[in-house]
Design a binder for these strands. Structure first.
Lengths: 215, 215
DNA sequence: GGCGCGACTGCATAAATATGTGAAAAACAG
DNA sequence: CTGTTTTTCACATATTTATGCAGTCGCGCC
């Protein structure tokens, strides 16, 4: 094992990129391999900069971090990739894990912890926040578990069904046709759903449904 | 949420059980619900001792910790169970996770970390050693996925941004106000987004965005 | 039986969205 | 510098949504 770790950063925000870069450059045992604003040339970047560890922002224009991660792992699986994100959003954690992420931290992670995390992946660990660790465990589908905390959002069977169709992108008309009920009925069901979820539009309802997995 | 956490220990080694018990009893915010040598009466124990957190030795005569875990989760899924083991064996980690473990630590974990870990599960985290965390991540690619769907969906930065707001439930008007642009501009961005994502409504766009993590 | 509730239907109106056409300034790449 | 993409704005129109009000029907419950 080399004594120094080459770190590459992908982060679209130039300010954050610069400060992260500076921070890590000052850490003992770390050397910056680069700091880029997008991962559209991920494969070439690996070839050229030869990092040991990559810090990858998950929200980037052009090519998302997930996509970048996938491409990196496809060409050089040995590189350790730690994802950085603002939110601990379920789907993305799942996608990132499936794509082979070696760690998953929040952008607001304190500098010290970040440097520690780099050491951790190098040592074969998998740095992640407690909440994400929990999510990861929950992702194992063998024993589906109910979230003990959040609202049951007691939707009736019919309402759940319709919410599911909304999530699929169905319009009122399509739902009515699909379920053989009148469009006015669809309206009234959706009104109820809005009340129960405390939302005021299809968009919000879909978002809430997907986020808290009550589809 | 109560201010104290009731902890139950299952550990067949009497000496270790006693010292753990004593250790935890001395920690602020913790109170021992019990310390047992086997989990053959797990269901009844839960009923009787009502723990918030269970520390479960994985190697026990009579009824293994995995089996005990399964039975606990079957009757009271809300109880947080942290597994304790001597080795970081792959199979057992996998079985434990699948059975619903909320954390996974080594017996040699220093006392301080153990107490910290109990706080962590209570707070919705999932304490585990770095090596185990890594193992857990590695267990994933076994279940590969990713829609054979299509394109990288090359959204421009602005488009991603607006899509993000849609996901948050913003209306055209709100987006225009939020970003200080005209509502017609918002329309035109959204039209482009629809083209690129191959959708025809906000609902579909939000759904697609959340599902394939391109927010 | 009477009551409440959930599923269902209908109608009406105001607001928001989908879609097309057109176009100019700015940013960027070759 | 030139062509492409992005971002911005405008106007018009057909649909779709959001919301309120009103009523029927079946079911479990006291």
């Amino acid at each position: 094992m080399e004594t120094t770790t080459r770190v590459l950063i992908y982060e679209d925000n130039a300010d954050l990129r610069a400060s992260l870069s500076q921070l890590l450059a000052g850490a003992p045992g770390l050397v910056m391999a680069g700091a880029l604003g997008n991962c559209t040339q991920a494969e070439a970047d690996m070839e050229r900069l030869r990092p040991d560890v990559v810090l990858m922002d998950i929200d980037m224009p052009g090519c998302t971090g997930i996509e970048g991660l996938r491409r990196i792992k496809a060409v050089v699986p040995g590189i350790q990739v730690v994802m950085l994100t603002v939110f601990e959003e379920n789907d993305r954690v799942f996608d990132a894990i499936c794509a082979g992420a070696d760690g998953y931290l929040l952008k607001k992670t304190p500098p010290g912890r970040l440097i520690e995390a780099i050491g951790e992946v190098r040592a074969g660990g998998a740095p992640m926040t407690p909440a994400i660790a929990r999510q990861v465990l929950r992702l194992f589908p063998k024993v589906p578990r109910r979230a003990p905390d959040e609202s049951p959002a007691n939707l009736s069977a019919r309402e759940q069904e319709i919410l599911g169709l909304l999530v699929e992108g169905y319009s009122y008309k399509m739902i009515a046709a699909d379920r053989g009920i009148s469009i006015d009925t669809v309206r009234s069901h959706i009104k109820k759903i809005y009340e129960k979820l405390h939302v005021r539009s299809m968009t919000e309802a879909v978002s809430k449904a997907l986020r808290q997995g009550l589809t």
